[in-house]
């Protein structure tokens, strides 16, 4: 039963039996894995708040051959994002969506340093109080790109012609970019401004991008594009996506959250 040490993010947790937890972890060294933390839900648990979602931990675990779940032996906090997730409902929902994207698009046991660094930088930017919506859109583009699903909008997937600088690109339901003549006309439009925003996302760190975030309608178009790609890749919607957008709109329009209950 080999003992491993790793640096990891807690992506999500599930209750197990009376006082245990199953944790989905993204480790830097071994990729995504699932582990059991015995007694983690007890009031005097030795894990304390280490296994709360979005916490970066220094982890020690045992792995048995042929067992899917590893056994978490020890965890210590490297960086906690508990306060941001707990103090703001919208930031908490945003982090949940980010975590959901990692869970869905990262294969098990395949280390990905770029995704680990992306998650670190994004969560740090949340902590600095940057524009939550811009950070989520940033993470979406990068995560889908690193997972191999984000389309390259520089050329048409139909005719192979490069996209003209001032022309719109049309994204079909299968996520493929097409020029005006190859598209059926019922696809999602990526304007030159959207393509410019995507280029900025791919060139800058999250905090810098969020500092001079594009207007809300452009971020909404990016969100629609991400939704289309996620639907095509997973053949379903992510619940956290809808909930994040709902809570964000409620916050942006004060009073709507109360109206929803009337």
């Amino acid at each position: 039963m080999p003992l491993h040490n790793a640096q990891a993010f807690v992506l999500r947790t599930y209750k197990l039996a009376e006082a245990d937890k199953i944790c989905v972890l993204m480790t830097r060294q071994s990729g995504k894995l699932r582990g059991v933390a015995y007694g983690a839900r007890k009031l005097k648990s030795r894990f304390g708040s280490c296994l709360e979602p979005f916490t970066e931990i220094s982890l020690t675990y045992f792995e048995k051959d042929g067992r899917e779940l590893v056994s978490i032996s020890n965890a210590e906090i490297v960086r906690s994002h508990y306060a941001q997730a707990a103090d703001s409902v919208v930031a908490g929902a945003a982090m949940s969506y980010v975590s959901d994207l990692c869970c869905e698009f990262l294969p098990d046991h395949e280390p990905s340093d770029p995704v680990y660094r992306l998650l670190t930088a994004t969560l740090d930017a949340f902590g600095e109080g940057r524009d939550v919506n811009a950070l989520v859109r940033y993470f979406e583009v990068w995560m889908l790109k690193l997972a191999g699903f984000y389309p390259d909008l520089r050329s048409c997937a139909g005719c192979g012609e490069p996209a003209a600088p001032g022309a719109d690109v049309w994204i079909s339901a299968d996520g493929a970019p097409r020029c005006a003549s190859c598209s059926s006309g019922r696809s999602l439009r990526a304007t030159p401004a959207i393509r410019e925003t995507i280029a900025r996302i791919l060139a800058k760190p999250p905090a810098t991008f969020a500092e001079s975030a594009p207007p809300g309608d452009q971020l909404d178009r990016l969100s629609e594009l991400a939704l289309l790609i996620i639907r095509h890749a997973l053949e379903r919607d992510l619940k956290s996506f809808a909930l994040f957008n709902r809570l964000r709109r409620e916050t942006e329009t004060p009073g709507t959250h109360l109206e929803n209950f009337e």
Partner: peptide, 17 residues
């Protein structure tokens, strides 16, 4: 925990007004 705190925050936003 994170979920409980988020819920408390959400409810407090509804109740305070």
């Amino acid at each position: 925990n994170t979920e409980g705190e988020a819920t408390a925050n959400y409810v407090s936003r509804l109740v305070r007004p």
